[in-house]
Design a binder for these strands. Structure first.
Lengths: 201, 201
DNA sequence: AAGCGATGTTACGCATCAGTACCATCGATG
DNA sequence: CATCGATGGTACTGATGCGTAACATCGCTT
């Protein structure tokens, strides 16, 4: 159904640029990367870059939008892996996030990092990050509720903070820190959280 | 014992500069503030700034060092407020952090933000942040252990991640998000955490 | 082969910023 | 009053970065 993935070297420029931007923005920080560096990494030049993105900020926005979309994908993967079993979906998600945190380059969540780097509260990129994080949290609450836990908001918020905390702390205490134990902590939390007496259908 | 605090306007330049840097670095982000802006906010100029700090990076380092030192102060305050009662000290600390998070400008932990902004792993400022965060975590583990909880590392790591998560998430989901409920979550965690049978003296 | 759109290349203009040189000023101390 | 150190003020250099102009080229369609 989908087209074959051409080797990136001969993919269309827009794709190469986004790929390069993603790599550099994440590893070196959004504000530390010049458009020239992105274009060069993408095997093209500034001019072509500006033919696809009207400004640097728009490229940043595209970068964040792409990441947010992939974040959505994990939820679908969880549904697909454990259809009809919200508790298993929950643990699947936590496992995914933990694995990513453990093996990542220690730069944490790119979306959250962007919110830190782009401090101006009116920056368009912030809206993308905020919308994504809020949606994630709402979905988490819904999933925890579906899984039948009592006080779903509380459990979801604890999980949410654990996950966010694990990702940031990678950058300060490193990979041997508590971030690496995220899954164990989250699972223990779930295992000890009381389930609601199933009153509803 | 300490000298009277002169009104900041006529304090020595170094102090005014650090104060201005602190304000601007925190609110607008380290990379988004020029030394000119700092000097102007401090009511002086670039030249005087460079007579007190040999480079911009050194000013950043001084800024982070100051923050780290104040972070240490909270631990002393906790000891002073509840001497000999580690469990109360723990809750005191969590309350402090929660209050800060709830009423802050939503920019989270300045140290953690610095680690995000200064992505180069060899950057001198990173060492300050890493050392500080590690020390915080070690102290937390020690305090949780003193308070007699079973599995102190696990409890401390959960608390650590909750706190770090609350601070970052302020920037993405805002103040109405789970960050505002940090103290309730942390307290519930402590209340439900089992205590160790006191075997030791 | 002719034409055309997308891409590559080079060179700009304009702004910002870190860091410095140079000189003026002010305040305490002798 | 004279001196000297610390500070204020201005102007500069060198570097970097965003965004654009103008032109060359390549590939695909007709």
């Amino acid at each position: 159904m989908a087209r074959l993935k051409r080797p990136l070297a001969q993919a269309p420029p827009r794709q190469r640029i986004l790929h390069a931007a993603r790599d550099l923005f994440y590893r070196e920080g959004i504000n530390a990367v010049s458009v020239e560096a992105i274009a060069a990494t993408a095997g093209t030049n500034k001019m072509t870059l500006y033919r696809h993105f009207s400004s640097r900020d728009e490229l940043v926005a595209a970068y964040l939008t792409e990441l947010a979309a992939e974040g959505e994908g994990v939820w679908e993967a969880a549904r697909a892996a454990h259809p009809g079993d919200p508790d298993a979906q929950l643990r699947f998600l936590l496992r995914q996030v933990s694995q990513f945190a453990a093996q990542s380059s220690g730069r944490g969540c790119a979306l959250a990092n962007a919110a830190v780097e782009l401090a101006e509260r009116k920056h368009p990129a912030r809206r993308i990050v905020e919308a994504h994080k809020r949606r994630q949290r709402e979905r988490l609450v819904a999933l925890v509720r579906e899984a039948g836990y009592a006080r779903p908001e509380r459990v979801a918020d604890e999980l949410f903070l654990l996950v966010e905390g694990a990702r940031v702390s990678l950058q300060s205490v490193g990979r041997e820190g508590p971030g690496s134990r995220l899954y164990a902590l989250a699972e223990a939390l779930l295992d000890s959280a009381p389930k609601k007496k199933s009153v509803k259908a």
